[in-house]
């Protein structure tokens, strides 16, 4: 199955889900003739047509040149699992931030990403993580006055 074929099927699924969700929009007499559901319905319809076009084209193309291997250039070198792993580090950060707070969380994120990206395991990682976290804390919390999460673990200390 070609990438376009898969994409087409995914788009079709998105279109259907979106349409189904739009059923939950309240119908108000405060609304106009087009209504709050007007554009969502048009969009899901348009996306469905585009998805079908993509699927049809993918099937026609694959029939035409089954022999030619598609020299897939996806414009990226990383493998999908590796890239998703990278993203998961961010997800973990978001998850632990309310508990361990901004400074510790940021230090952990920098260290984790650096190690994930192949930094040698030595004191440099620790120094960079600690220094970076303090730097960002000074920048965002002190200078810009943003209320970054304090962390429930340390709440008693402050």
């Amino acid at each position: 199955m070609s990438k376009d074929l898969i994409s087409g099927v995914v788009l079709l699924a998105i279109s259907g889900t979106y349409y189904a969700w739009s059923g939950g929009i309240a119908d108000s007499t405060l609304s106009d003739e087009v209504g709050a559901t007007g554009l969502p319905h048009v969009l899901s319809f348009v996306l469905a047509i585009l998805a079908v076009l993509l699927i049809v084209r993918a099937i026609l193309v694959s029939r035409a040149r089954t022999a030619i291997a598609t020299g897939a250039d996806d414009g990226s070198d990383a493998s999908l699992p590796r890239a998703i792993g990278f993203l998961l580090l961010g997800a973990v950060y978001v998850f632990v931030l309310p508990f361990i707070g901004y400074v510790a969380g940021t230090a952990l994120l920098i260290a984790a990403v650096a190690l994930y990206e192949g930094a040698p395991r030595n004191w440099v990682v620790l120094a960079a993580a600690g220094g970076g976290a303090v730097l960002y804390w000074a920048l965002f919390v002190k200078l810009l006055g943003v209320h970054q999460p304090v962390g429930s673990l340390f709440q008693g200390l402050l």
Partner: peptide, 19 residues
């Protein structure tokens, strides 16, 4: 070096979005 840069950029972006 790339490994550190990635960590710093990632942390910078996430901190910025939070604001």
């Amino acid at each position: 070096p790339r490994a550190y840069r990635a960590g710093f950029i990632f942390a910078l972006i996430l901190s910025g979005i939070f604001t």
